[in-house]
Design a protein around this nucleic acid. Structure first.
Length: 561
DNA sequence: AGTTTCGGCGCC
DNA sequence: AAAGGGCGCCGAAACT
């Protein structure tokens, strides 16, 4: 029994599908079915479906109650392979891949559709984006060969498989949604913001705070207009460059306190207020649209609804259904643990080999027990801190964990010089990512090492641009390798949940929520631990580094921390 | 009038 | 002296 099959739309509106052998070649006759669900239902032993786009195909399967074990998303793999080959700017559609293969004109990618509240994937995409089955298989076969040409083919295969798994998870989470109590949400809004006034203006509490701000300035000031606030401070004899909170906090003026409070509540009102509730919550569920691999680093994004930025106070509204629980699991100190795994720094691997608080261990070794300083230093190294106490602390970190700091320093230098930088599994940072204003890139002129070296070593300083690319690359290797690992974690956890009633309902960088019947919670907690262990082994190979999770079994998300 | 950018803050 | 990495979201401001 062949376990890998390709699936593609047929001309008659149905689908075609056929078995694949080693190397990705067709090994059997092409079959036909009326729709994808019929094809998948008829072949329950297939473990991996090869198709053009998971986001396009899988929601339709889920809508008819059909789940698949694994898939291979050709266009997602194309994106990752192009990136690895240093061709990230080229069109990534399957049609474009086929055109490159055959030497024809390469079609540009279709524009991304924008998100609207409650939007569904369109039932039918333009026919031009589809490839007939044999063409899709041709692209797939070539992709298999391109995997072999990478620096670590086994890792690259794992990466494309893991991202495809992530897309299955995302589609399933988009279908399930996050349990959400509109009543609780409204109660929280009322407590924070006060009554709403007719006409859609500011709620009571915001209006009061705006009045307090105006009173403190002695004239009418709109606290939601930064320019107005800066001017008001100037008239009061206080020079501020912006109205950012960290800057205002050091200002001694009676308007500061109500102003900061206003901005905090204003944010909740506009981003997660009543209209958000109206737009995004239906039938007891918040339905954002998760997109696996939506960023260069491999982190997910959501399209609409701001699901990855739910303010802590609003999490009160995330409530399990009666008799069910939320298992909220948070990876402990994920980034430094990942740094330990990829840099193989002996000292950092040793502290990351324990499940206890890593920042505390680091501080015991290098910061006289000051955990806060240790954490700042580690994050500063990962983010590319350029000033402040972090720099001094970075020196201490470098003395104790030289290989770890050298790893991110090397990545930063590579980024500044316009070289490719990769995660552990091979996800690749485009040479000029993160700035988008690189003139030579826009002109299609590759940045040669000479040019970038000139820029870096030019009299004075490296360009701000090059510096920014260095910070981006420095962070990329850690954040991106962490994303590699979380994908494998999700894939493993998804398979565990498949045997239960449990549903994966939320994922946010290093945190996952499983919604399950009360009697399954212990099994789910164990499954998370096992999935983390497995993901660590699969991603990084033999490593002493552990990836512990903090798990909380709660009825309400807000009670998890 | 419609579209893009900016400022500020939410999350990690 | 230097105010870090990734995102999304919103309204206002600045464009075309």
């Amino acid at each position: 029994m062949t376990d890998r099959w390709a699936l593609a739309p047929a001309e008659d509106g149905g689908v075609e599908f056929a078995p694949l052998g080693p190397g990705g070649l067709l090994t059997g006759p092409v079959r036909r079915a009326a729709d994808p669900a019929e094809a998948v239902r008829g072949l329950p032993d297939v473990t991996r479906w090869v198709w053009r786009s998971t986001a396009e195909t899988y929601p339709r399967l889920l809508a008819t109650g059909v789940r698949v074990e694994r898939c291979y998303d050709v266009e997602d793999a194309e994106t990752l392979l192009l990136g690895h080959e240093g061709r990230s700017g080229e069109p990534r559609s399957a049609a474009a891949a086929l055109a490159r293969l055959r030497g024809g004109p390469v079609p540009p990618d279709p524009p991304q559709r924008s998100a609207e509240p409650g939007s569904q994937s369109p039932l039918f995409e333009p026919q031009s984006v589809h490839l007939p089955l044999t063409d899709l298989v041709e692209v797939y076969t070539e992709q298999q060969r391109r995997h072999d040409a990478t620096a670590h083919p086994d890792r690259m295969r794992l990466l494309t498989a893991a991202e495809s798994a992530g897309m299955l998870v995302a589609a399933e989470m988009n279908r399930s949604g996050l349990p959400w109590s509109a009543d609780v949400h409204r109660r929280v809004l009322h407590e924070l913001l006060g009554e709403r006034y007719a006409g859609g203006g500011e709620p009571r509490r915001l209006a009061e705070l705006a009045d307090e701000v105006s009173a403190a300035f002695g004239r009418r000031v709109r606290p939601d207009l930064p320019a107005d606030v800066v001017k008001a401070f100037a008239q009061a004899g206080i020079k501020v460059k912006s109205t950012r909170r960290w800057e205002l906090e050091s200002v001694d003026h009676p308007a500061v306190k109500p102003l900061i409070e206003y901005k905090k509540l204003y944010r909740i009102w506009v981003a997660h207020g009543w209209s958000w509730l109206q737009d995004w919550v239906r039938e007891g569920r918040f339905r954002p649209e998760f997109q696996a691999g939506g960023t260069v680093t491999g982190r997910w994004v959501t399209n609409g609804g701001g699901a990855l930025q739910i303010p802590k106070v609003i999490r009160r509204a995330v409530v399990a259904e009666p008799g069910w629980r939320l298992v909220v699991a948070d990876a402990d100190q994920m980034e430094p643990r990942v740094l330990a795994a990829i840099s193989r720094d002996p000292g950092l691997m040793e502290v990351a080999g324990r499940e206890t608080d890593l920042y505390q261990s680091v501080s015991d070794r290098a910061f006289s027990g000051d955990r806060a300083q240790a954490k700042l230093a580690v994050l500063g190294a990962v983010y590319g801190q350029t000033s402040g106490d972090g720099l001094k602390n970075l020196a201490a970190l470098r003395r104790r964990f030289p290989k770890a700091v050298a790893y991110v320093d090397d990545a930063a230098r590579a980024g500044e010089e316009g070289r490719l930088v990769r995660t552990w599994l091979g996800r690749t940072c485009p040479p000029a990512a993160g700035t988008g204003d690189d003139a030579s890139e826009e002109a299609g002129i590759p940045v040669t090492e000479d040019e970038s070296a000139d820029r870096q070593w030019a009299p004075g300083y490296a360009s701000t641009d090059a510096r920014a690319r260095g910070r981006f690359a420095r962070n990329f290797v850690v954040q991106g390798s962490a994303a590699d690992w979380t994908l494998l974690l999700l894939a493993a956890l998804r398979q565990s949940c498949a045997d239960m009633a449990a549903e994966l309902v939320f994922f946010q960088h290093d945190e996952v929520i499983v919604h399950c019947p009360e009697e399954e919670t212990e099994t789910v907690v164990a499954a998370i631990r096992e999935a983390a262990e497995l993901a660590g082994r699969l991603t990084f190979g033999e490593t002493p580094v552990r990836f512990p999770f903090t798990t909380a079994v709660v009825e309400c998300y807000a009670d998890a921390k």
